[in-house]
Amino acid sequence: MDKVIEGIAYVLGNDIDTDQIIPAEHLVYSLSDPEERKHYGKFALSGVPDDQAGLPDGKIPFTENGQSESKYSIIIGGKNFGCGSSREHAPACMEIAGVRAVVAESYARIFYRNSVDGGFFIPFECVTRMVEEIKTGDDLVIDLNASTLTNRSANKTYELKSLGEVIEIIEAGDIFEYARKTGMIPSTSRGGS
């Protein structure tokens, strides 16, 4: 696990639900086929209403011109990030687009769990609300050892909450690696790719 995550901020508001993260009509593509899964990157966050897409100004597309990768790799969110359906396509599409961390005020349970167990990215919780503090396009760095988020564009540092008990799964990589490490499933059980 990287101890430092650097990236450009993409800022969203409260209650970003999984239909906004990946509209259901796109849930038909394979997540395992290397080419087909790129569609998920292309449509990541495409359901966010235009005026809410990339705060504070909005109207900033997360990915451009049919690209499957975004230049924004750290998402800043408000309350209840990832609410709605259990679709794992939601954290997956964000990872495919290049997201490495989300910093939100709070998370919906299934989205949080999927992010951790699937090892898509690290879902951090901020101590104080960040949505009004950070602008889309700001240059950010997360220091895992210090548990801080620094906005290099504004020269300000903020505290992040401890990752708590899920740190062991995050450090292992995903729930399978965690279960192998702890002997719950045999380390020989991994199949082919």
Binding site: A24, L27, S30, L31, S32, S86, R87, E88, H89, F176, S189, R190, G191, G192, S193
Partner: peptide, 19 residues
């Protein structure tokens, strides 16, 4: 049908094609 295919792919990757 929406989540089964992804679930089966992860199952095979983690536990083996013939698991």
């Amino acid at each position: 049908d929406v989540c089964g295919p992804g679930t089966f792919a992860i199952f095979k990757k983690q536990f083996g094609e013939n698991a």
